[in-house]
Amino acid sequence: MKITKTKAFNVFFKPIWESNPISGQILGICSALAVTVQLKTAVVMGLALTLVLAFSNLSISLMRKFIPRNIRIIIELTVIATLVILTDQVLKAFLYDISKQLSIFVGLIITNCIILGRAETYALGNPPFLSLLDGIGNGLGYSQILITVAVIREFFGAGKFFGFQVIPDTFYAAGYENMGLMVLAPGAFIAIGLIVWLQKTVSKEKT
């Protein structure tokens, strides 16, 4: 059996592109946009979300046989909130500047629909290892969109890539100006709309 046909492979790679949580399933856009002005914050946010998602999926899947159905939402929320508190404390301790920039959006990972959605639809019915892979896969899919949007916004909005200037000074001297729109909120909406358009068109051609 080829590796691309195994279940684990599919569980891991499908959410990264084909059934991407943001552009395919329209989940978790709430926190996706505000952190994408700079690439740096987007990367950290993507990482934080991937970690929380992977571990919440893992622990909920480990407990799935003991969780009573009626109170499952509150148990899931408690697990997620605990993981988010841990992430927030770690960020505050080691990456203080970035955690200030992310401000409330780390806390909002709790209400991010991706995490609760994956716990509900996947982790409650599947074994721990597959759930962990599913969590990481979805987290990476989310980060991928976040990073794409951030690259576009940082490039057009500030002429930078990861904080380094990439548009040469001669351009500015010749009258080139940064696009202020991209730094503001509307830029994020429009960028993500265009990415979804691109992705849908590409994946339609494939099948």
Binding site: A185, A188, F189, I190, G193, W197, K204
Partner: peptide, 18 residues
Amino acid sequence: KGLENFGISMIITGLMAM
């Protein structure tokens, strides 16, 4: 095609935000 539903809603929201 491809921009329907989600894509166009995002772009409209962007215009509204502006």
